[in-house]
């Protein structure tokens, strides 16, 4: 077994340990806590009055636009990280390429701002 895989076994062990911790705490609580159900307790909370409608509210479409923009910038970060590590090897060529890449994305962000999609009113 190589060091590499051993590292990820550590990750696995930690996920397991974390999940066991949560399970144990919930399990112990389920042994200790009272259970005294009434119908009113199982109603959805809406500040004390009877809930109106079917639960889910509508949310605005502009949240979706932020999701789209985020994908662009997160993918950008994915590209930039390996380049930052290999900056010396890639040299001037890589540098110019990356500045062009970032500039294009910046133009995109400026376009989005000028279009007013980031306006929130």
């Amino acid at each position: 077994m190589t060091e590499y895989f051993q590292d990820y076994i550590t990750v696995g062990a930690f996920i397991g340990l974390g999940a066991v911790l949560v399970l144990a705490m919930l399990g112990v609580a389920s042994l200790l806590r009272p259970s005294n159900p009434t119908k009113a307790k199982y109603l959805t909370y809406e500040c004390g009055v009877d809930p109106v409608g079917d639960g889910w509210a509508q949310s605005h479409v502009r949240y979706y636009i932020f999701g789209l923009l985020f994908v662009i910038f997160d993918v950008e970060a994915v590209f930039i990280f390996p380049w930052a590590i290999k900056l010396e090897e890639l040299g001037m060529f890589g540098l110019v390429e990356m500045v062009v890449f970032i500039a294009i994305l910046t133009v995109g962000l400026v376009y989005a701002i000028r279009k007013g999609v980031l306006k929130w009113e």
Partner: peptide
């Protein structure tokens, strides 16, 4: 399945990203 948690959740995701 409730209004306030849903609003909180949507806000949270937009903010975090």
């Amino acid at each position: 399945g409730s209004k306030y948690p849903l609003i909180g959740g949507v806000r949270g995701s937009a903010q975090a990203i």
